[in-house]
Amino acid sequence: MNNQSAVSAIEIRDVVKSYRDVAALKSVSLSIPQGSFFALLGPNGAGKSTLISIIAGLVKADAGHVNILGHDVVSDYADARRLIGLVPQELIDEPFFAIQDLLRIQAGYFGFGQEQWPWIDELLHNLGLWDKRKETMPSLSGGMKRRVLIALALVHKPKVLVLDEPTAGVDIELRLGLWTFIRQLHAQGMTIILTTHYLEEAEQLCEQIAILREGQLLALSSTQALLAAHPWEYIEVTLQGENSVLPEALQASVHRQQANKWVLRLPRGMVRTELVANLQQAGCLLSEMRSIEASLEDVFRAMTSKDLL
């Protein structure tokens, strides 16, 4: 491991933030490696956006430190901000300037002049904004505005890109196009940090996942390890006959049901023969039985739902 990769893309240490009496973040610490595709997940109000805003410098932490590639976001804010691009969750407007001018102005804030214009044009093309470059934000649809926000976050070619709910309210076609583009950036070495409510997106894209709940870090692991560590396994059982009834002993394990098909949530390691024996003792005729891999959504629900803990 060389020195460059030894430095984390983002290093968060004991970050605390409260809004009046409400604790948004309770001493959160985590490290995001360079070049990773990282998901920050959690239910509404978990503190994701607050943490992201602290990383980007939009919110000041009450205590703790955040470094971006070794640069403190408070004491060394100028260098830290040059290294990060943020796509905020909420849409913005700017009625005075056309999209292309807005991007050039944003690049100018970071010290770039005309030498950055080819990159800005490339962004406009890649994000499907070229035809809209002379228009202003208020004339664009929500999906188009979201693309502009992504372009704005990338004008200075940051090393770390943070996307806060980038696909909220975005149609499927745009979502797929967006992820293709983001994957390209990641392949070029950019660290991507993502919050999303679409957990299948996080599962497909991200190598590492952190889960927050009520301002605390519940889990920090690779996606595979997180799925493997899930204490439950899911088995789909199909019984013969449309009016089949599952034995009483297994009713408590039903995860979901459709006609004569049940998905049972059972403790990992439960012997299958035990399950088959249970069914046979109750006189059930087994038509089919198969194992279903736990999804990130299952893991997420188990970790963030108080009832299941």
């Binding site: 100028a78 260098d79 901000r81 040059r82 905020p88 909420e90 407007d93 944003q106 804030y109």
Partner: peptide
């Protein structure tokens, strides 16, 4: 009001 102040606050400008 337009929330574009964030663009300025995200920049390295002092």
């Amino acid at each position: 009001m337009y929330r574009n102040l964030d663009l300025l606050l995200l920049s390295p400008l002092s």
